[in-house]
Every structure is written in C-alpha cells, then in structure tokens.
Amino acid sequence: MEDASFALGIWGVPLAIVGGALRVSAPFLFVSLGECITEKSGRVNLGLEGTLVMGAMSAYAASYWSGSPWVGVAAAGLVGALFGALHGWLCGRPRVNDIAVGIALMLFGIGLAFFLGKPLIQPTAPRLPALSLGYFSQIPQVRSALAVNALFLVGILLAPALRWALVRTRWGLIVRTVGESAEAARAMGYDVNRVRFWATAAGGVLAGIGGSFLSLFYPGSWNEGLSSGQGLMAVALVIFARWDPVRCLYASLLFGGATALGPALQSVGVSSGYYLFNAAPYALTLLIMVLSSSAHRTSVDQPAELIAAR
C-alpha cells in the first residue's frame, strides 16, 4: 500500500478526482434527472434538497430496520414521491408560487429529517454493495477509485432511457407539451395540473433515491451534515445541461469531480486551501450559470412555460 501510493505520486490527484467523480456524482445525477422531468412539465421544484435529505434519512432507517439496503432505496423513493406529490398538489392551486413552495419544502424536509433521524446517528445500517471495476489493477488506489455502486450504474442507464422516453413516447410528448404551452395542452384535452403533479412526484422519487445513495454508499452514514447543497446544485445543473437527461449525466460527473477536488488534493498533502477547494463545486455552478445565461435571450431548450412563469 505504502509503495503503491509512492509510485503513483502526483498521478494520485487525477485518479482521486476520477474516483471521487464516480462516487460523488450519483446524488447529482438522480436529483438532476428528477428535476429534469419536473421542469420539462413547466414547473421548478427547488425543494429537492429537502427531498434528498429526507430520502437519505429514510433509506438509512429502512435499511437499518429491514437489514436490506435495497428496501432502504425503495423507502427513499416512496418518501421522495410523497414530497414531490405535496409540491405538485400545492402548486396546482391558484396563486401558489412554485419557487417559494420549493424553498419551504426544502426547509421542512431538512428539519423533519433531522428530527426523525436523531436516533439514527449511532447505529450502523447495511450499506449498498460496490462493484469493483478495478479488478484488473494491482494498485489499491485504482481498485478503490473504481469501486462503483450498482445504483450509479442504474442512473447511467436511466439517463439515455429518460431522454428516449421524453422524445419518443406518448407520455414524454404530453409532458413536453404541457411544459411548452399549457394552453395548447389544455386545448388538446389534457389536465395540465395533473400532468405536472405526476411529473413532480416522479422527480421526487428520483431525488429520494439520490438521497439513499448519500446515506447508504458514500459517505455511507446518516448525520446532519450529510448533504451540503447537492440537491440545490443539481437544480442549477439542469439549466447547464439545457434540460437534456444525457447532458445531465455529463454535468453530474463534472460536478462530482469538482466536489472531489478538495479531498483529492488533501490526500497528496496539499491542505492549505482545503476550505477554499470545498467551494469549488459552488463556484463552478455559479460560473456555469453566468456563462450559460443571458439577459436578453433565453435558451431555446428551456421549456417555454418556465419562461412565462417568470
């Protein structure tokens, strides 16, 4: 082990970043895919940060009590669906602002998770298994960097599947119609609020599952500092990915890598700016938002109903 780390030298940094990207990006991926569905239907759910934390807590609890981490994942998806449904129902009422409800649900979800999760800080729940894709290598760092969670692979497959569903299926067409023009959808006989309700609930399921990843794989325990705004960054990431599920995948990997920058540099002894490097993902998000938006025109990929709501 000692020899190997010596042999890797400075190459340990990019390796740690790649490994970190594979480990850290799953919550970004799931939340951004969920938000992508919701925003395609013409609504913004800023509350996914709260859903993520609630998902993490309920996954840990269910995994601890049932002994199976996959039950935990299912529980997280269910709780996420409930939170998404609450958002979808509230915003379906007239004069209720979706952005503000999102902020409220974010604070509510975090508060509720901390309240219910208090007894879960001590016990250890069974964690999700990892697939070692680094079996070919003799170097332990490579092996640990390439230990990938099965759930993350599901997410990787989900991204193109979701793009296909949005573009090629009848359901995708309905969601996109509602997101592009509520008037047109209404004229065609679709219940706009109902479509948005289900799109928000589906987004909640994915965000909840993203949360289960935090508590059951990496970092792999439940505590109150578990999420540091990943749910919110993922919402920003959807704008960067221009509302395309496959681009959400690339963006998630990029963000995961940025998040891993601080710990990666620390592992080779660069520790002076540790806290500043922790700001890297936020600064990157902000930079990307500044570069990808414009005061005078909106992206053609943006669902038109999102612009109308401004």
Binding site: L46, A236, Y275, L276, A279, Y282, T285, L286, M289
Partner: peptide
C-alpha cells in the same frame, strides 16, 4: 439583471461560497 442568472439559486450558491471563505479565513 446583467446576465439573467436566477437570483434564488445564485444567492444560495454565494452563501455556500461565503461560508467556505469564512471557514478558510477563520481556520487559517
């Protein structure tokens, strides 16, 4: 107003950046 960046998200990102700068200076 100058770049059309959503102020809700950017203000929260700036908060996280501010907290990171705070930690850096207070610890260093």
């Amino acid at each position: 107003v100058l770049r059309g960046v959503n102020e809700t998200i950017s203000s929260l990102l700036l908060a996280y950046i501010g907290i990171a700068v705070f930690n850096h200076l207070v610890e260093g």
